[in-house]
Amino acid sequence: MLKWFSIVCSMMYVFATTNTAEVLKVPLFVQHFIEYEGNLAEFVMEHYDNHKEDSDWATDQKLPFINPPIVLMVNAQLPEITFRIEKPTEITVSREKSTYQEKDFPSLYLSRIFQPPRFS
Score class of each variant (00 low, 15 high):
33 F>C: 01
31 Q>E: 11
100 Y>A: 06
43 F>P: 00
64 P>C: 02
55 S>H: 12
113 I>K: 07
109 Y>Q: 05
94 S>G: 04
70 I>N: 08
92 T>F: 07
31 Q>D: 08
111 S>I: 05
99 T>Y: 06
84 R>S: 14
2 L>C: 03
106 P>A: 05
56 D>E: 13
98 S>K: 00
28 L>P: 01
5 F>Y: 05
80 E>D: 13
58 A>K: 15
76 A>M: 12
57 W>S: 15
97 K>E: 02
115 Q>N: 08
16 A>M: 05
100 Y>N: 06
100 Y>V: 06
89 T>D: 06
88 P>G: 01
25 K>I: 03
61 Q>T: 12
117 P>G: 02
118 R>F: 09
41 A>V: 08
42 E>G: 09
87 K>V: 08
15 F>C: 01
29 F>I: 02
64 P>K: 01
50 N>A: 11
104 D>Q: 13
93 V>S: 03
120 S>T: 07
23 V>M: 09
101 Q>C: 11
48 Y>S: 08
5 F>E: 08
92 T>C: 09
104 D>K: 10
58 A>L: 14
3 K>E: 09
9 C>F: 10
66 I>D: 00
101 Q>H: 13
82 T>G: 03
38 G>I: 02
53 E>T: 14
75 N>L: 04
25 K>Q: 13
48 Y>R: 07
36 Y>L: 02
5 F>A: 07
24 L>R: 06
118 R>G: 02
106 P>V: 04
77 Q>R: 15
64 P>Y: 00
99 T>I: 05
20 T>G: 10
75 N>E: 10
118 R>Q: 14
47 H>W: 01
44 V>L: 15
32 H>G: 03
14 V>E: 01
17 T>Q: 09
51 H>M: 06
117 P>V: 07
32 H>M: 11
65 F>W: 12
11 M>I: 13
12 M>E: 11
43 F>E: 00
65 F>R: 05
58 A>Y: 14
83 F>E: 09
108 L>T: 06
39 N>K: 13
33 F>K: 03
54 D>W: 04
63 L>P: 00
59 T>Q: 14
116 P>K: 10
30 V>D: 06
64 P>Q: 00
11 M>E: 03
59 T>V: 10
87 K>A: 10
117 P>M: 03
90 E>C: 06
